[in-house]
Simulated assay, not measured.
Amino acid sequence: MIQVYHNPKCSKSRECLAVLDASGHDCEIVKYLEETPDESEIKTLVEKLGIKPIDLIRTKEPLWKEKFQGRKLTSAQIIKAIVKNPILLERPIVIHGDKAIIGRPVDRVFDIIG
């Protein structure tokens, strides 16, 4: 089953779900602002995405700019920041098996659903 880290207030996240729905795929929706992923889950996301933790950050998010931008943070510190402030997590994230993508632009969803 496909898993989607979703923020209902995000238009890109809603578009992603619409594409998945239209393609007939069942999805498990993770409302990550309510069900905050722990450090282990974030590390797994990073591995599946094949990126660095900083690449999971919404760098235009006001909270990032206020508290973290310009600071030299380790990967572990970035992961802790995401866990403590899940609004920083880039979205949507689509996971299918051992692969994952950030669904921006939404067309990237087709890369994971084949």
Rank of each mutant, 00 (worst) to 15 (best):
M1R: 05
I2W: 01
I2L: 13
I2R: 06
Q3M: 02
V4G: 01
Y5C: 01
C10V: 00
K12H: 04
S13D: 01
R14L: 02
E15G: 00
C16G: 10
L17N: 02
A18P: 03
A18I: 05
V19M: 05
V19C: 00
L20Q: 00
S23H: 06
S23P: 01
G24M: 09
C27S: 14
E28W: 04
E28P: 06
E28G: 08
V30L: 08
V30Y: 01
K31S: 13
L33Y: 06
L33M: 04
L33D: 02
L33Q: 03
L33P: 09
E34S: 11
T36F: 00
P37T: 07
D38F: 11
E39D: 02
S40M: 12
S40D: 13
E41L: 10
K43P: 04
K43M: 15
K43W: 15
V46P: 09
V46R: 07
E47F: 14
K48G: 06
L49E: 00
L49F: 06
L49I: 04
G50S: 14
I51N: 01
K52Y: 15
P53A: 09
P53I: 06
D55L: 14
L56H: 08
L56F: 10
I57H: 03
I57S: 09
R58L: 03
K60I: 08
K60G: 09
E61D: 07
W64L: 11
W64S: 09
W64T: 13
E66T: 15
E66D: 14
K67E: 12
K67S: 15
G70V: 07
K72Q: 14
K72A: 12
K72G: 13
K72W: 06
L73G: 08
T74W: 13
T74S: 15
S75E: 14
A76W: 05
A76Y: 06
Q77L: 14
I78V: 15
I79C: 10
V83N: 12
V83G: 15
N85V: 02
N85I: 02
P86H: 04
E90Q: 15
I93Q: 08
I93V: 11
V94W: 10
V94S: 08
I95Q: 11
I95A: 05
H96D: 12
H96A: 13
D98K: 15
D98W: 05
D98I: 08
A100P: 14
A100G: 11
I101Q: 03
I102H: 04
G103A: 02
R104A: 00
P105Y: 03
D107Q: 07
D107I: 02
D107G: 12
R108C: 02
V109R: 07
D111L: 11
D111M: 06
D111A: 11
I112M: 04
I112L: 10
I112D: 01
I113T: 04
I113Q: 01
I113N: 03
G114H: 09
